[in-house]
C-alpha cells in the first residue's frame, strides 16, 4: 500500500510540475504572507509556492529537499530577512544553486528592507533568549508594513517581467486601496480599546499592538524562544489579575494547554490568532487574515 502511495505521489508531483511552466514568474515565499501578497499582485502571471506551512512554527521549518527544487527554478524569492528563516533557508539556498535569487540579485526580495524594526537588541546575547539581532521579524502584522512590502514586490515583478508591469501596478494599487479601506474599519473596531494590554505567547504581536494602540508587551515566554517556566507564568497571571488583563492570544502551533491553564486561572479569554494567511479558516488572503484577527481580538476585548 505504501508503495502504491509513493508511486502515485511521484506521478502526481511529475504532473503537477508540468503546469506552472507557463507562468511568467515563478515565486517562492518563505512564509505564507509573502506568498499571499505575491499571488495578489502577480495574479495569473505568477506561480507561487511557500516553504513554511501556515500553521507551523516559522522559526523551525524543515529544509525539505523538495524546496531545493522549487528554489532552483524560482525567478523570485521573498523572505522576511530579519533572521526568522536563519535556521532553515541557508541550506536550501546552498542546494538551490540559483543565481537569480542569490543575495543581492534582482529576484531576491528581502521584505524587511526599508521597514523600521522593533526590539533591536542592544547586544547579541543569547542569555536573553533566541533574540534576532536585526530586530523583531514579525513586522508583517502591521498592515502598513504590508503596503511597503506590496510596493517592493510590485517593483521587482515589474522589473523582471516588464510585460506584466501594468498588471502588477494595478493589482498592487488595488491591494493598497483595499487595505486603506480596511484599515479604517480595523482602527475603528479597535479604537474603543485604546491603551489596553494583551498577553501573547511570544513577541509576535508587537507590531500589531503598536499599530492599533494595544500594548502587546506581556508574554508567556520569559524570554523570546524560551519555554514558559512556572514562576514566570505565576508572575504573568499575577499581573493579569492586578492590571485586569483578560485577553490572551495564541497561535496554531503554540502550546494551547499552557494558554488554557492561564486563562482558566485568571478568568481571561483565549483568542486563536495566526500570522499567516490560511492558518485560520476563511483567510486565504492577507486582508482576510488581518480582518479575522482584528474581529476576534475586538470581540475578546469587548467581552465582559
Amino acid at each position: 500500500m505504501r508503495t502504491t502511495r509513493v508511486f502515485f505521489t511521484i506521478a502526481a508531483t511529475c504532473m503537477a510540475a508540468v503546469l506552472p511552466a507557463n507562468a511568467a514568474l515563478k515565486v517562492v515565499g518563505t512564509t505564507g504572507e509573502y506568498s499571499a501578497l505575491a499571488s495578489q499582485i502577480g495574479g495569473a502571471r505568477v506561480s507561487v509556492t511557500t516553504i513554511a506551512k501556515p500553521t507551523e512554527d516559522p522559526h523551525f521549518v524543515d529544509a525539505r529537499p523538495s524546496q531545493i527544487v522549487a528554489l532552483n527554478r524560482a525567478d523570485v524569492l521573498i523572505e522576511g530577512g530579519a533572521e526568522l528563516e536563519v535556521g532553515w533557508l541557508p541550506p536550501l539556498l546552498d542546494g538551490s544553486r540559483n543565481p537569480k535569487i542569490a543575495a543581492g540579485a534582482p529576484g531576491r526580495i528581502v521584505a524587511s528592507q526599508g521597514i523600521q524594526l522593533l526590539d533591536i537588541p542592544l547586544a547579541a546575547d543569547r542569555s536573553q533568549g533566541d533574540t534576532h539581532v536585526a530586530g523583531n521579524p514579525h513586522f508583517m502584522l502591521d498592515p502598513l508594513n504590508a503596503k511597503i512590502v506590496a510596493e517592493h514586490i510590485a517593483r521587482v515583478f515589474s522589473a523582471l517581467d516588464p510585460a506584466g508591469a501594468s498588471l502588477y501596478r494595478t493589482n498592487a494599487s488595488a491591494f493598497e486601496a483595499a487595505l486603506d479601506a480596511k484599515m479604517k474599519q480595523w482602527t475603528a473596531a479597535l479604537a474603543p480599546f485604546n491603551g489596553r494590554q494583551i498577553v501573547t505567547y511570544h513577541p509576535t504581536w508587537r507590531y500589531f499592538g503598536r499599530r492599533f494602540g494595544l500594548k502587546a508587551d506581556t508574554f508567556l515566554e520569559p524570554k523570546p524562544g524560551i519555554p514558559p517556566s512556572p514562576p514566570h507564568l505565576a508572575k504573568v497571571m499575577q499581573k493579569m489579575q492586578a492590571e485586569n488583563i483578560r485577553v490572551l492570544l495564541v497561535e496554531p502551533y503554540q502550546p494551547r494547554k499552557t494558554a488554557e491553564a492561564v486563562v482558566a486561572r485568571t478568568g481571561g479569554v483565549l483568542v486563536d490568532v495566526a500570522q499567516f494567511p490560511g492558518a485560520l479558516p476563511g483567510t486565504p488572503t492577507y486582508l482576510d487574515l488581518i480582518d479575522t484577527v482584528v474581529k476576534r481580538v475586538a470581540q475578546a476585548l469587548a467581552a465582559k
Binding site: 530577512g81 533557508l89 541557508p90 539556498l93 543575495a103 523600521q116 522593533l118
Partner: peptide, 12 residues
Amino acid sequence: APEPTTIVSGAG
C-alpha cells in the same frame, strides 16, 4: 523609533 536598518538576509 529605531533607526531604519539595512537587513542582511540569509545566514549573513
